[in-house]
Computed example of a mutant assay.
Amino acid sequence: MKRTEAAVPVTDGRTERGRQTREKIADAMLSLIDENQAHFPADKVAERAGVSRRLVFHHFADMAELAEVAVNRRLEQLAAQIRPLPTEGPRELRVAALTEQRARILEGVTPARLAVMRLENPSPRIQEAVQQMLDFARLRLTQIFAAELDALPESARTDLLHGLDAVTTWSAWYHWRSGGLSTEQARRTMAAAVHALLAGAGAGAGAGAGAEAGD
């Protein structure tokens, strides 16, 4: 009996080219965002992408939609760079690991966050993506500093978590960087603020912080 060969799906070349062009346009928009451009006219995006202005609006309904896609693309790129952080061991090492990663991510997201601030009506999708990043960052704090947070009464725990959240998110980072601090100075400032909050709350030093004097 003659075997019937399985049908092989045929890739639509036009669909693939369209996807590549759409990504090229979004990347062109991102390059302008990364340069802290105040405005993103379609002509400039088209020139940067090497396509026609008409093609920009063939793939995107308007510049607001393009900005949304570009910003979400950047958030996805940065999210892919997030790595697990230590949740046990000496506090000094946990703070160092946290602030090194936060500094890198927050510096990378700054142009996109500024672009969102310049949008008249940021889309719900962008706002949701930003909120998800904030929620995830806060969750990571509860895991990294579980030893310190869990040793406190509920009200003190809540206050400490609010403080840690405030000094490790983008608003604080942008305040330091726009005030003239280098990325390394801003990272050290963040680390100092985290240590001060933990010490001020009377949080324990955490696992592996070192032996008591005389041990």
Results as ranks from 00 to 15, higher is better:
115 A>W: 01
27 D>M: 03
39 H>A: 15
51 V>Q: 07
124 P>K: 05
109 V>E: 12
152 L>P: 13
10 V>T: 15
144 I>C: 09
60 F>P: 02
71 V>H: 01
135 D>E: 14
68 E>P: 00
71 V>C: 05
140 R>L: 14
54 R>I: 09
212 E>C: 05
74 R>G: 02
118 R>Y: 06
172 A>T: 07
28 A>N: 05
159 D>L: 12
81 Q>R: 15
150 D>M: 04
81 Q>I: 03
69 V>I: 12
95 V>F: 09
183 T>R: 13
7 A>E: 15
75 L>A: 07
190 M>D: 01
213 A>E: 15
163 G>I: 10
182 S>Q: 04
124 P>F: 03
144 I>P: 09
131 Q>E: 13
168 T>H: 01
74 R>M: 07
98 L>D: 11
31 S>Y: 02
95 V>D: 05
174 Y>G: 00
215 D>L: 06
76 E>K: 12
39 H>R: 15
59 H>P: 03
65 E>L: 02
201 A>E: 07
92 E>W: 09
156 A>L: 13
11 T>A: 15
153 P>V: 11
168 T>Q: 04
55 L>V: 14
120 E>P: 06
186 A>H: 02
200 G>H: 08
56 V>D: 10
112 A>W: 00
176 W>T: 00
140 R>V: 14
60 F>N: 08
159 D>R: 13
33 I>E: 00
129 A>T: 11
197 L>C: 10
136 F>D: 07
24 K>A: 15
11 T>F: 09
187 R>I: 03
55 L>R: 13
24 K>S: 12
128 E>N: 11
131 Q>V: 01
9 P>R: 12
106 L>T: 02
50 G>R: 04
96 A>D: 14
15 T>I: 14
